[in-house]
């Protein structure tokens, strides 16, 4: 069985790229650690979307769904752990400013 990837791929890809840019910008331009976490989340959303689209277009939706469910579980754990790291940083420095994480040199 062969299929041809339809032109609609480009539509989906465009929106994937937009979400990706948004997430990266949010992650890199902000100075608040919690908002970095939000940027990370937006990045993960974009990837989730892309995996589903890939499954949809290639006819492997069941596989893609299985992957996405695993990705979501991983995403939750990563968010919790990163939140813990941010909390620890806040308790130590009483600050959420990203610039305080740039002391190391060399």
């Amino acid at each position: 069985m062969t299929i041809v990837i339809p032109q609609s791929f480009w539509l989906y890809f465009t929106f994937f790229a937009l979400l990706l840019i948004d997430g990266l910008w949010c992650m890199l331009a902000t100075r608040n650690l919690v908002r970095v976490l939000i940027g990370i989340e937006i990045l993960m959303k974009s990837v989730t979307f892309f995996l589903i689209v890939a499954g949809y277009l290639s006819g492997r939706m069941a596989l893609a769904q299985a992957l996405v469910i695993t990705v979501i579980v991983i995403e939750v754990v990563v968010v919790v752990v990163v939140a813990g790291v941010i909390l620890g940083f806040f308790r130590k420095r009483d600050s959420l400013d990203v610039r305080n994480t740039r002391d190391m040199k060399g």
């Binding site: 919690v34 976490l37 939000i38 989340e41 959303k45 989730t48 979307f49 589903i52 689209v53 499954g55 949809y56 939706m61 893609a64 769904q65 996405v68 469910i69 979501i72 579980v73 995403e75 939750v76 968010v79 919790v80 939140a83 941010i86 909390l87």
Partner: peptide, 28 residues
Amino acid sequence: MFALGATLAAVVELSVCAGLISVVLVSV
């Protein structure tokens, strides 16, 4: 995701990401 036919993943996304992760973020 639901519109594309990924029903189960959509449910998980809705409950876990929209629910659980928001709780984590709000508490942080």
